[in-house]
């Protein structure tokens, strides 16, 4: 407890400097409202449900898009490693679309599905799928030949081997790809909501900024940032559990 307090002391220090600089009006209070005001605004928004309702719709979009991308991406990646025709068909497309800056898809998903949930979910699904696919592919491809052979000699058929040997050995890289996808999902969610949306965190940030209620805007910005950080931490704890056999 004391150790982690000491570890995160620099962050507390920054927070204290923020409060001090804003209170002494060293910078204009519109550009930097005091931290205490931001916290007060946050509590107000929780009370009247503004933050929670917008947050719920954001998390729904991110969760749905991410879940789809994990399912489809894993299937594609393992398929590419396991069946050569699938590889030949898909590998060139993956290679071309992988470096595409995913944010470029925002206007296209709007053209296809409008301004609502559907376009955000599609955007997050498309944007996050390739890191998962590449992770699953690299992992499955690196599953050792000896393992495959020994499983076969023990009488496993192709499908059993896929489940018993290829998927477990693909796991570390697959989980790594999903971590990248998790980070991307937040980036895409917030970007798309900032650009076109009628609800969600990004919409709320834009709305409050346009209204000039900057303390509330800061509160939402830091909420999103914290959620992104917390999601990554929780995910990493989950991964450590999953990969216990590696130690």
């Amino acid at each position: 407890m004391k150790q982690s307090l000491l570890r995160y002391l620099p962050l507390l220090l920054l927070a204290a400097i923020w409060e001090l600089v804003a209170r002494l009006e060293l910078v204009s209070s519109t550009a930097l409202p005091p931290l205490s005001d931001v916290i007060a605004a946050w509590i107000d928004m929780i009370k009247d449900g503004e933050l929670t309702s917008n947050g719920a719709s954001s998390l729904y979009r991110a969760g749905a898009g991410l879940a789809l991308s994990v399912i489809v991406g894993t299937a594609l990646g393992i398929g590419m490693a396991w069946w050569k025709p699938v590889n030949v068909l898909l590998a060139p497309m993956v290679e071309i679309f992988y470096p595409l800056p995913k944010s470029a898809l925002i206007p296209v998903t709007v053209i296809w599905l409008g301004f609502g949930d559907g376009s955000k979910i599609l955007l997050i699904f498309l944007g996050c799928m390739l890191p998962v696919t590449v992770g699953a592919f690299n992992g499955a491809r690196s599953s050792e030949q000896v393992l495959v052979w020994s499983a076969r000699s023990m009488g496993a058929n192709r499908l059993r081997m896929l489940w018993d040997v290829v998927l477990p050995s693909a796991m570390p890289e697959l989980l790594n790809g999903i971590r990248t996808a998790l980070a991307l999902s937040f980036i895409l969610l917030v970007s798309s909501e900032l650009i076109v949306a009628q609800k969600g965190f990004g919409y709320l940030i834009g709305f409050l900024g346009a209204n000039g209620t900057y303390d509330a805007m800061y509160a939402v910005v830091f909420t999103v940032a914290f959620l992104g950080f917390a999601a990554d931490r929780v995910y990493q704890m989950f991964v450590q559990r999953m990969l216990l056999w590696r130690q």
Partner: peptide, 26 residues
Amino acid sequence: RWFFDPIISVGFPMPKIAFLPVVILW
């Protein structure tokens, strides 16, 4: 290391794009 390590480990997974309106403000 003491000063920057927590900032990096907390800041890395954050969706920094959310700070865009703040940066525009400044």
